[in-house]
């Protein structure tokens, strides 16, 4: 698949923003314990909102006909893309209601809005994953691991951003303790990512299945066009094996290992966040670049 930068940025940025929102809300339940004051909470919410909104805006960049994007919420019954869009739009009034309840002091509704927000944020991450996981035409994505990955990596990058947001609190409060949630989630994340790399579905269809000539060698004689087409442009992306291997190591080291070490041994939470997000951008680029669509069989590839 062609790795579209707008979609890669959207999934990583919105994912981290939603994760940060979830952890900020949960942290606000124990604000006294972790010494998070109101101003710091609001600063964190602004960061999360900026990341989510920037991602959502970026996701519209790959649309060829943006004026019809208004219709994209009407097929909630069948389309995961529609579901994701609707849940993302619900997030804003819900967040506004929660902040209003905090500001005006309506303690009887804050627990509801808080947990609804947490559920909505996780549901958006799940929907983003299911957009890709529901495609039977791309075997590599068509697995439960895809939505699990989107939810886990979103919550993980958000948990690294949480201590960074907390570090915005007044200096006299003192240093932040070890962000154990971030460290544990980064460890779970790296184990999951390596398991994904080893266990994702692969090579399920052959060119024989594609054409129905079950026995014997089938090979492409002529593809019928002299230059690139929409199909070769969209699905024909080829990634060199050496490059893929190097990028996978980059993703593992910068997405997980380095942020984990920074969180454990230092207080450089902003650096940890940026490095984690950079690593996840590489991971997400690979997610698209390595996925193979079955239409490649008709263009002469032997197995997908």
């Amino acid at each position: 698949m062609k790795p579209a930068l707008s979609v890669i940025f959207f999934t990583v940025s919105s994912g981290a923003g939603l994760g940060l929102l979830v952890w900020l809300l949960i942290a606000s339940l124990m604000a006294d314990h972790i010494r998070m004051d109101g101003a710091t909470f609001y600063k964190g919410v602004v960061i999360a909102a900026l990341m989510i909104t920037a991602g959502l805006l970026s996701s519209t960049l790959h649309l060829a006909n943006r004026k019809n994007a208004i219709f994209s919420l009407v097929r909630v019954k069948t389309s995961w893309l529609s579901r994701e869009g609707l849940l993302a739009l619900i997030l804003y009034p819900l967040a506004a209601l929660h902040l209003a309840a905090l500001h005006f002091g309506w303690p009887h509704i804050t627990p509801f809005t808080l947990w609804l927000l947490v559920a909505d944020a996780i549901a958006i991450l799940y929907c983003t994953g299911m957009i890709y996981a529901c495609l039977r035409t791309i075997p590599r994505w068509n697995t439960w691991m895809t939505p699990a990955k989107y939810v886990l990596f979103g919550l993980m990058s958000g948990s690294v951003l949480l201590p960074a947001a907390l570090s915005l609190r007044p200096a006299e409060v003192g240093p932040i303790g070890k962000p154990m949630v971030a460290i544990v989630l980064l460890a779970v994340g790296v184990v999951f990512y390596i398991a994904y790399l080893l266990k994702h579905p692969r090579a399920q269809h052959t060119i024989n299945d594609a054409l129905g000539f079950k026995r014997g060698n089938v090979r492409l004689l002529d593809v019928g066009h002299s230059h690139g087409t929409f199909l070769t442009n969209e699905f024909g992306f080829v990634l060199a094996r050496e490059k893929a291997r190097m990028l996978r190591w980059l993703a593992i080291v910068f997405g997980f290992i380095v942020p984990m070490l920074l969180c454990y041994f230092t207080q450089w939470f902003w650096s940890a966040s940026f490095i984690c997000i950079a690593g996840l951008l590489v991971e997400r680029w690979l997610f698209f670049a390595e996925a193979e669509h079955v239409v490649r069989l008709y263009h002469g590839q032997q197995r997908v």
Binding site: L211, F213, R215, G216, N217, V218, R219, L220, L221, D222, V223, G224, H225, T229, Y298, H299
Partner: peptide, 10 residues
């Protein structure tokens, strides 16, 4: 679109 293939016999 028309594509052309060679099927190798047994």
């Amino acid at each position: 679109r028309i594509r052309h293939y060679e099927i190798e016999g047994d």
